[in-house]
Write a protein that binds this DNA or RNA. Structure first.
Lengths: 239, 239
DNA sequence: CATAAATTCCCCATATATGGGGAGGGGCTA
DNA sequence: TAGCCCCTCCCCATATATGGGGAATTTATG
């Protein structure tokens, strides 16, 4: 079975996946067809909720959840600041929490080699697609060279499908912001005060307040900080 | 020349690209090898600055810049809210600004067909990779089916390279936030008041203030809104 | 052309955030 | 073990933001 066929097969299976269970099956068959120890799709943030389809043991997952490892896991922390797929060897495992985590992960049968692909979507979506294996550095390098591109595509398509399944109404029309409102929120995000922004936009501070208020109301935000973070994650403003 | 070779050739050319000029040349040769009307890499936000490598005419680019079309362009607005490559036909061209923009774009020789791939990186990076052409819907559909995957990979690798070139110190160590600081900023982003957050974290409001203050100082933020938006874009907190 | 939305201006009172201090206990690391 | 960072608590005074009103002109939209 050559490379193209593996990817083709995955994409064709993905096409006919319509439930969370299908995705789980898909990830398992992905692990088998590429001959690795584990394959993991982990949506760290999908409109506030997490979601995962993976081949780790349920025990390890429960443990991970209970210990709130998502906040400590160097893979997650690293991926949040990276764009390119990230090899686990290049992460910082120096502090105690990480070492502890690493030890427990090894005990849970997770491979010594691995890379994780960060996936970013609108609305603050953040997910990871991870492949890991037990093998030598050389073997791993060969795998990486051969399949990294497949994995990039797989990570993209699997996330796209998961969003479709988990957030069927995710494509609802967005609350539009008026140009002035968008400007206002942008400058607020930059840390400017009302007085400064009003000066920059050459309007009175009273007027500026109207924009902040109307943006808050449009977005259903509880306060200004909320409005700014909503507008940014929803892709309504550019920083 | 078959598909694999085109992509391979691009990636090999990319490997040896080390300056903005190289990227420009690369995009031009990309357009030629895939036989389309235009190829565009447009970093809308690269640490606050824009950057573009494209095959549009300089006149159109100047016009685009002068008119601040980035704020009106339905392609940009749409891509900000999408994950998957977005066909231009599926955008909303109904309002006056968009129609006007479309007319001028046609006059500038931009193809009637096109799709744009949104690219999201850490630090609020947002870029678009666009391919457009003059052809029928059917021809376009064929092109899309055949080359969409290539384009996804190209968009990923070109962005990765541009960031390396334009932000060579982009991989500097991030200001770490303590767990309490990160929690605090996260809840602030959710729109909670100090009083509520203090209650949730079961600490006094005074203590909470210390976290906000120290986070502000660590991030070099001008105020709380700024601190939250910095922490989020830098990947230091999960919403 | 009628209606809606955007943009601009203003007042008053209260709630909340910020800036400047200070202080003690506990844990990790060199 | 010494030093650094984290976590927790407190005071005072001032600056800034919010919530509740109201109203005009211009610009888009159907």
């Amino acid at each position: 079975m050559d490379t193209v066929t593996k990817l083709e097969q995955f994409l064709s299976n993905l096409e006919s996946s319509n439930t969370p269970n299908d995705i789980q099956t898909l990830v398992t068959s992905l692990r088998d067809s590429y001959g690795v120890t584990n394959a993991v799709y982990h949506a760290v943030n999908l409109d506030g909720a997490p979601y995962a389809a993976l081949t780790y043991t349920p025990e390890w997952m429960d443990h991970y959840q209970e210990q709130k490892y998502v906040q400590v896991d160097p893979v997650v922390r690293g991926a949040l600041q990276q764009f390119h797929p990230m090899d686990w060897k290049r992460l910082d495992w120096s502090n105690r929490g990480s070492r502890n985590f690493l030890g427990e992960a090894n005990d849970a049968g997770i491979g010594n080699q691995g890379f994780s692909i960060p996936i970013r979507g609108p609305n603050g979506q953040f997910a990871l697609f991870t492949i890991n294996d037990n093998c030598t550095d050389q073997q791993w390098e060969v795998f990486r060279k051969e399949f990294l591109r497949d994995m990039l595509l797989i990570s993209h398509f699997i996330h796209n499908k998961v969003v479709k399944i988990m957030l069927p109404d995710g494509n609802r029309a967005q609350t539009p912001l008026s140009p002035r409102e968008a400007d206002t929120l942008k400058y607020l995000a930059h840390g400017m005060s009302r007085t400064n922004i009003a000066g920059k936009l050459e309007i009175s501070e009273h007027t500026l307040r109207v924009y902040i208020d109307s943006a808050r109301h449009k977005l259903g935000a509880l306060n200004t900080v909320h409005a700014v973070s909503l507008a940014y994650t929803k892709g309504l403003i550019l920083l």
